[in-house]
C-alpha cells in the first residue's frame, strides 16, 4: 500500500438548494493516477474547487500531504455525520486560500482554459514560479536577486522544452492553438512545483489522436516530475487507459469506486451514464 497524498472526509458543498457535492470521501494514493468521472453537473469541478480552496466546503475536511488544508464542521451537522474528537467551535474551521494550498504542492488546470491571455507563453510559466520567490518587492525591483531570477528563467525554459512549447516561447498565450493552450496550462501548473496535479477535463475538445497523445503526455510528466495525478475526464478511453483508480460521481454522490474494469461493469455507473430511471 502506498501512502495517501490527498484525502477528503465527508466533504459536502451546498449552493442554496443544490447539493453539488454530497459526502465525498476520496483517497488519492501517491504516485498513482486517479480519475473522477460522472455525467455533466455531477459535481466534479465543484469537488476540485473545494479541494483547491476556491470554495469553502459547507461540511467536511480535506487533508493533503499531512496538512489539514480545509475543514468545516458546523456543530449541529457534525453530530449527525461525523464523530470527531474536536471540542471547541474554533477548531472546526480551517480555511486556506488557494494560493497557500498551491504553495503546499497542489496545482490545477481549469475546465475552461484560464491562461493569462495577454501575456507570453514564457511569462505564463514564470508567473507560476513567483509563488516561491524569496526576494521581497524592493530587492526584486532593483534586481538584487539576479541568481534567483536566472534560476527561474532557466527553469521556465527547461519546462517549455520538456513540453515542446519552447518554439512558442515569446508568443502571446492566446495566439496558440487550442490543444497547445491546454498543454501550456499543464506546464504552467507544473511550474508551481506540485506533488499533486489536478486536471479538469484536459482532453476537452480534442480529437481521438490528440487525446491519445495527451494520455502519453500525462504518463510522461507523471514520471519525470514524480507526480500524483487526479483528473476529471469525459473521454472514457483516456480514463480507462491511464487511471489506476476511478471514482464515479452522480448528483454529488459517489456511486462507484474501483479500477477501470470494476467501474465499467458496475450497474450503478451504467445506469447513471445511460440515464435509466431508478425503479
Amino acid at each position: 500500500m502506498s501512502t495517501i497524498l490527498l484525502k477528503t472526509e465527508h466533504v459536502t458543498m451546498q449552493f442554496g438548494g443544490v447539493v453539488a457535492v454530497d459526502d465525498l470521501n476520496i483517497e488519492i494514493p501517491e504516485g498513482k493516477i486517479t480519475a473522477l468521472i460522472g455525467p455533466n453537473g455531477a459535481g466534479k469541478t465543484t469537488a476540485f474547487n473545494v479541494i483547491t480552496g476556491g470554495y469553502q466546503a459547507t461540511n467536511g475536511r480535506v487533508t493533503f500531504d499531512g496538512h489539514v488544508i480545509g475543514e468545516n464542521y458546523p456543530r449541529s451537522k457534525m453530530k449527525k455525520i461525523y464523530n470527531g474528537t474536536y471540542k471547541t467551535l474554533n477548531e472546526h474551521q480551517v480555511i486556506n486560500t488557494p494560493d497557500k494550498i498551491t504553495r503546499l504542492g497542489m496545482a490545477r488546470t481549469f475546465q475552461n482554459i484560464r491562461l493569462f491571455k495577454d501575456l507570453t507563453v514564457f511569462e505564463n510559466v514564470l508567473i507560476a514560479m513567483h509563488g516561491h520567490i524569496k526576494a521581497g518587492m524592493l530587492r526584486s525591483t532593483f534586481k538584487l536577486n539576479k541568481e534567483e531570477e536566472l534560476m527561474m528563467n532557466q527553469e521556465a525554459d527547461k519546462l517549455l522544452h520538456s513540453v515542446n512549447l519552447h518554439m512558442h516561447r515569446d508568443e502571446k498565450s492566446s495566439s496558440l492553438p487550442y490543444g497547445m493552450q491546454r498543454k501550456l496550462e499543464i506546464a504552467r501548473a507544473l511550474a508551481t512545483g506540485p506533488k499533486l496535479l489536478l486536471l479538469d477535463e484536459p482532453a476537452a475538445g480534442m480529437n481521438p489522436k490528440e487525446t491519445e497523445e495527451l494520455a502519453l503526455f500525462i504518463q510522461e510528466i507523471k514520471e519525470t516530475f514524480s507526480l500524483t495525478v487526479f483528473l476529471i475526464e469525459h473521454h472514457m478511453d483516456l480514463v480507462m487507459d491511464i487511471s489506476d483508480k476511478i471514482y464515479v460521481l452522480d448528483y454529488g454522490k459517489t456511486i462507484a469506486l474501483g479500477t477501470a474494469n470494476e467501474v465499467q461493469n458496475d450497474p450503478a455507473v451504467i445506469r447513471a451514464y445511460l440515464g435509466v430511471e431508478e425503479a
Binding site: 494560493d99 508567473i127 509563488g131 518587492m137
Partner: peptide
C-alpha cells in the same frame, strides 16, 4: 518601470488577467 518589469510586476499583470488563475498559481492576491 523596474517594478513592473520585475517578478512582482508580472504577478500584478497575472492578477489583472485572471484573479482566479493567479491565485491558483500560488500568488497571494
Amino acid at each position: 518601470l523596474l517594478l513592473i518589469n520585475s517578478s512582482y510586476g508580472r504577478a500584478f499583470k497575472a492578477i489583472r488577467e485572471d484573479e482566479i488563475a493567479a491565485e491558483a498559481m500560488g500568488i497571494n492576491l
